[in-house]
């Protein structure tokens, strides 16, 4: 009995010690940035001894959660409008906002030979289902809609649209082949500068407004050493190299 007690208190003491020496920050991250942030967080935890834990979601959902008291210290959004709005609403520290990545849109199919290098497949319309992230919720969906409107194919494709709740679900629709093709984030289908599978058209930047993805320190992260350090780390050369390797540009 005493043995058990002392063991328990040793464990509790260990837990307490761990929290006393290292800070923890919960980072809310837009779904498109899932892969790079996973690597950045792993490096951050290793290099600093602090702990950054990641929660993924659509930017709109994360915003709603933060507004309603979610314990996030940092938001890595998929746009720059949401962090700006949060600054005005007192949910974040306004002068902490910066662009951590500029997202790239890609038209992608899990099958080779479906998407050509000029995106002509959009005009031909020889497909049943076209996956798009819900433009109301996801900046990549909005950008995809912009591209289709600019090329003049939106009305033709609209009846074939299947909407993902966020960019991850959109990717899932295409990756399983249920939708023949769709607009996803380049970061989802690229590794070390190469498209990993299927066929893709990296959409030229002049067809849509740049997807500036901004990070911001949230009110709950203020004064948290791990949170402030993570934002600094995100600007480091090491993080920049990881971000670039997933096809993002940096400002």
């Amino acid at each position: 009995m005493t043995n058990l007690k002392s063991q328990t208190s040793a464990v509790l003491l260990g837990l307490f010690a761990a929290t006393a020496f290292a800070d923890e920050v919960q980072v809310a991250v837009a779904a498109n940035f899932a892969k790079p942030v996973e690597r950045i967080a792993a490096e951050f935890n290793k290099d600093t001894g602090h702990k950054a834990s990641i929660s993924l979601g659509a930017t709109g959902k994360l915003y709603a959660q933060i507004r309603n008291g979610a314990p996030f210290g940092i938001l890595l959004a998929a746009d720059d409008a949401t962090p700006q709005k949060m600054g005005k609403e007192g949910l974040s520290v306004p002068d902490s906002q910066f662009t951590y990545a500029i997202g790239k849109l890609v038209l992608w199919s899990a099958k080779p030979g479906i998407v050509d290098s000029q995106g002509e497949v959009l005009k031909k319309g020889a497909f049943q289902h076209f996956a798009l992230a819900n433009p109301k919720l996801a900046p990549y969906g909005l950008a995809g809609e912009e591209v289709m409107k600019k090329i003049g194919v939106f009305n033709a494709i609209q009846p074939k649209l299947v909407l993902g709740e966020n960019i991850t679900q959109t990717y899932q629709f295409v990756a399983t082949g249920n939708a023949e093709l769709g607009f996803v984030a380049l970061s989802q289908v690229i590794k070390d500068g190469k498209i990993t599978e299927g066929s893709a058209w990296i959409v030229p930047q002049n067809l849509y407004n740049p997807i500036r993805q901004d990070a911001v320190l949230l009110a709950k992260g203020k004064g948290n050493a791990a949170a402030e350090l993570f934002l600094k780390y995100l600007k480091s050369d090491k993080a920049a190299a990881i971000i670039r390797s997933y096809g993002y540009e940096l400002p």
């Binding site: 915003y63 109301k136 909407l163 993902g164 709740e165 679900q169």
Partner: peptide, 24 residues
């Protein structure tokens, strides 16, 4: 997961509610 949120075909109540909440 299998619906794709298509108005009139697969956008049922629960999905519509979720959409509205996410879009604030």
């Amino acid at each position: 997961m299998i619906g794709g949120n298509i108005p009139g075909a697969t956008r049922v109540l629960s999905v519509a509610i979720y959409d509205h909440v996410e879009a604030m």
